[in-house]
């Protein structure tokens, strides 16, 4: 474990990523305490520019709502949607990929056609259609994001499992009389953990982007304040009030950047390139 952290910490960007991520997490947890009032409440005159009023450092939007409060409350939503939808996507993608990769043949053909189908569908458009038809809510958003993001997981798992299945230690397990279920769960899946963790981290980032894009299009949960919604609300007044869109965008950028940095750091730490043997 210490060796892991040493390798991780060697990547300075990854350390910065962790720091930013922790800050966002703290902000999300502290939001209700910092801004006890609803972020939807009108608290000041509309179009208050930032850095002019100490109480509202990031200014207010077209309706006089506090942008700082919206950014703080949006943090929790973004992280929640990001993590839950990624978890759901992993739960769909891992079994499909593992089964396809292990059994191969017809099963693989069938499952991969299914996966390919979902990969061929433009995923943002599908998410838009799904959320629009099932009415925007936290559940429909999370479900839509999970439905459009699992195919890469399935493909990754399939490739990994296929490679591992041909490895001699798995054949040895088969010959030593172990049954298929335990072989997949005990011998194979633990060896796919590193790439799954790395992909999962990157997927959280992508899910946050996707959620913000949906909210931007007006497909956010109407009861929940999210970064994408604020940017969307500021879109039409960008000429008069640039700050409405700017700050939540920076928040998304930082969070997504942090997650990607962490993903890269994990990749370095979990898959150290085997030093080439000197002959």
């Amino acid at each position: 474990m210490t060796a892991f952290w040493v390798r991780y910490a060697r990547n300075r960007g990854a350390v910065a990523g962790i720091v930013i991520l922790v800050l966002v997490l703290v902000l999300a947890i502290a939001a209700p305490a910092l801004y006890p009032r609803s972020p939807w409440a009108m608290v000041q005159r509309p179009f208050l520019p930032p850095f002019t009023n100490g109480g509202f450092p990031l200014g207010t939007d077209t309706m006089g709502r506090d942008i700082a409060s919206a950014v703080a409350h949006g943090a929790g939503v973004s992280l929640l949607v990001g993590f839950v939808s990624t978890l759901a996507a992993l739960l769909i993608g891992i079994p499909i990929g593992a089964v396809a990769g292990y059994f191969g043949g017809r099963v693989d053909d069938l499952l991969m056609r299914f996966t390919e189908f979902f990969q061929s569908v433009p995923n943002f458009a599908l998410a838009v259609v799904l959320v629009a038809i099932f009415r925007p809510s936290l559940v429909s958003i999370v479900a839509a994001i999970a439905i459009v993001s699992w195919p890469p997981v399935a493909r990754l798992l399939r490739g990994e499992v296929m490679a591992l299945r041909g490895r001699e230690f798995v054949q040895a397990a088969v010959l030593s009389g172990q049954r298929t279920g335990p072989i997949i769960l005990r011998q194979i899946l633990p060896n796919t953990l590193s790439p799954v963790i790395v992909l999962g981290t990157m997927m959280v980032a992508a899910a946050i982007l996707l959620e913000s894009a949906l909210s931007f299009m007006g497909l956010g949960d109407p009861n929940i304040m999210s970064w994408g919604y604020v940017i969307g609300a500021g879109r039409t007044v960008i000429r008069q009030a640039w700050w409405v869109s700017l700050f939540p965008g920076v928040a998304i950028l930082l969070t997504v950047l942090a997650l990607n940095l962490v993903g890269e750091g994990l990749n370095d730490a979990l898959n150290p390139r085997l030093s080439r043997k000197t002959r």
């Binding site: 940017i231 500021g234 879109r235 960008i238 998304i252 950028l253 950047l257 940095l261």
Partner: peptide, 16 residues
């Protein structure tokens, strides 16, 4: 790395 993490629609707004 930066552009990879930037929301497209926000980047578009900032470009405008």
């Amino acid at each position: 790395l930066l552009f990879y993490a930037t929301p497209l629609f926000w980047l578009a707004l900032m470009a405008v």
